[in-house]
Amino acid sequence: MSDLNTRMIEKYRNDFLKEVEANVEEGEWVKMCMQCGVCSGSCPLGKHWAHPPQEIFMMIRAGKREEVLTSDSMWMCTSCYNCIVRCPRELPITHIMHGLATYSKKLGLVPKGQPTATFAEIFWNNMMKKGRVNELKLGLSLYFKDGFGQGIKNAMANQKLGMSMMKAKRMSPAEFFGGHGIKDVGGLQKMIKKAQELEEARMKKFD
């Protein structure tokens, strides 16, 4: 896929749009956006987006491939679905944002240290190990994502929270040594591997 990483395209042509349609979840909807801006105005994290959804869609259509795929904007999506239910054109905006984030990740274009991207990866790996999420390990690995020293600092900041969660039996130290899991982990992992392979095979190459 390396050729896709550095692909240069002509502006205001259909090239990048077509790539998005082929390789991004629900990407075929992007062309249907009518630029009303309702999504951007509805997004709870709107002000933190360098390019809110409306703009992202316009950038795709303007062929701004690199700017879109290296943006951290779509990582701001909290999956609140506010935009989806309000979009007059019924674009599955949330999914497209997720799809763009995923695609950017597949191509290795995510900005370094993007916290949500990091967390998402930790989450996924945590889940894939046992088929269920281990919240304690998830929490700990998040605190240590920036290295050991920073991890201690992060953890200290949340220590009080951790203690009260434990007291309320909503966080169990036993988790660290095992905790929840499914029985057929093997089957699950094989299944996901297959799904990943099938999806990979579906990706279109562009030159």
């Binding site: 597949k106 949500t116 989450f123 996924w124 889940m127 088929g131 996901i192």
Partner: peptide, 17 residues
């Protein structure tokens, strides 16, 4: 033997399929 749904954050590593 239910498994995790991958929640609203699973998307990034676990793409659509």
């Amino acid at each position: 033997d239910w498994n995790c749904c991958s929640a609203s954050i699973g998307y990034a590593s676990g793409s659509e399929l």
